[in-house]
Simulated assay, not measured.
Amino acid sequence: MALSTWDDHPEPLAVGSAPVPEYGSGSLADLLPTLAAGMGVPGRTPVITELAAADRTCVFLVDGLGWEQLREHPDEAPFLTSLLASSRGGTGRPITAGYPATTATSLASVGTGLPPGAHGLPGYTVRDPGTGALMNQLRWQPWTDPHLWQPYPTVFQLADAAGVHTAQVSSPAFETTPLTRIALSGGTFHGRLTGEERMDLAAEQLAAGDRSLVYTYYAELDGAGHRFGVDSDAWRGRLMYVDRLVQRLAEQLPARSALYVTADHGMIDVPFDEQHRIDFDEDWELRAGVALLGGEGRARHVYAVPGAEDDVLTCWREVLGEQFWVASRDEAIEAGWFGPRVDDRVYRRLGDVLAAARDRVLIIASEREPKESAMVGNHGSMTAAEQLVPLLEVRT
């Protein structure tokens, strides 16, 4: 990966200047298909070619652990930092999350091995073409049939059907959620409350089969970043805890195992002033012709009143063009923001206009989204701080 492409800010901000995620070569959607291929799961092909096959594989996904944030905090994460330098027989590199860089989208990409345009969870909130209402894909509100929304099998289901011992180890609260059902199910789910319990059980599950695929997850680093920022004492404390969890799991790996530590997105802190937080609810220009505002502050889906699509696109470009990549739906699809293809059922879920932040700026909605508008740390767009996530390896 040429990291410089994630830091350049070409002018003007043409749609094609956005640093599109590396679908098909080095994105989150490519990880599990590569690992499953190494265990002989039919129909899967290795995409991240430097990852050697292992009989037992564990993916530990840390919500909100961006590559750049990890590199900036070596003192809080000595074990993870040691993996960056490949000093433990593994490899440390960044991969891209996918667009938008947000939890529901990324977890679906991980579990299905598909980019957002195919799995169909292309944002925090998107319009349901069947009802016309905004659908929150993290909380699954309002309800819609999960398997109609995302019909593809997960990689875990394919591995389980191929005789691989397959398990997910996470918080008990996630066992029956729609997002788990359509993105992370297959084999058995094991709910454990504490991080230490999850690490110990993940190691046990790895050892339970001659071929094993295990997934485990930690959410609280992301929560600390949203509430306090990614350089706060609270965030640093959570990172220290994550570092101990990874080391605990690494030291228990059975023979012929590989542990991969990754994340769903990075994060960026945004100051609380009008220059950095543009309030849609108070900006008549941005509101003109808009029926629904979806997505999140740094990755907006904008749904226009029928017939106003071109006017909304022109206005958003004029108002935000120096701070955001602003594209029509078809321009974003052609540029590959959501992957090499967008399924027909997904097409109308995407905004008529897409706005992806380049600078340290948000489009908040203080009345419609009071909680989200008050967050310190944010994510979603295609900057390096949000897109690049670690892929760290420990092997036995």
Results as ranks from 00 to 15, higher is better:
T102C: 08
S185M: 08
W284D: 15
L293M: 11
A14N: 15
L107H: 10
A255R: 06
D7S: 13
Q387N: 07
P19L: 00
P151G: 02
G307A: 12
G186K: 00
G191D: 11
A308D: 12
S366K: 08
V214R: 03
Q247C: 10
P42K: 05
L239P: 05
V389K: 10
Y218M: 04
A183S: 15
A37H: 01
T105L: 00
V169C: 12
D310V: 06
F228R: 13
L65V: 00
D269T: 00
R360D: 09
V270S: 15
H73L: 15
P306Q: 09
V312P: 04
G92C: 06
H379C: 13
R358N: 03
L193N: 13
G123M: 13
L179R: 13
T91P: 02
L121K: 02
R88L: 14
R341L: 09
R211G: 01
E367C: 08
W140H: 06
H119N: 04
Q323K: 12
G16Q: 07
P115W: 00
P153L: 10
D145V: 11
T5G: 11
M267S: 10
V242S: 08
R198Q: 03
S4D: 12
W149F: 15
A356P: 01
T105Y: 00
V110S: 07
L184G: 02
D352F: 11
L84I: 01
G43Y: 08
D75W: 06
A161T: 03
E372I: 14
G117D: 01
R345Q: 11
A108H: 06
E285N: 12
G294P: 02
E11N: 05
G229F: 02
Y23M: 02
R236Y: 01
P94G: 02
W316Q: 09
V342I: 13
I95Y: 09
L51S: 08
D344G: 11
H73V: 03
D243F: 03
A207Q: 03
P151E: 03
E393K: 00
G351I: 08
S86T: 04
L83Y: 06
R368F: 13
A52H: 02
L253N: 14
Y215S: 13
I333E: 01
L51V: 15
Y347K: 09
T144F: 06
L362M: 15
G66D: 09
A54H: 04
L201Y: 09
A365R: 00
Y260F: 15
T102F: 08
G294F: 07
S366H: 10
F174K: 14
I48S: 00
T34L: 02
S17C: 11
D8Q: 15
S106D: 02
W325D: 04
V346P: 09
F156T: 06
L293S: 08
P116Y: 02
D359N: 13
L121S: 07
P19F: 08
S17K: 15
I278V: 15
A54C: 07
D352H: 15
F324V: 04
D352W: 10
D310Y: 03
T91C: 10
A162S: 07
D30S: 06
L350A: 09
M240T: 05
P19Y: 05
T103L: 12
S366N: 07
G295Y: 05
A384K: 13
G64A: 06
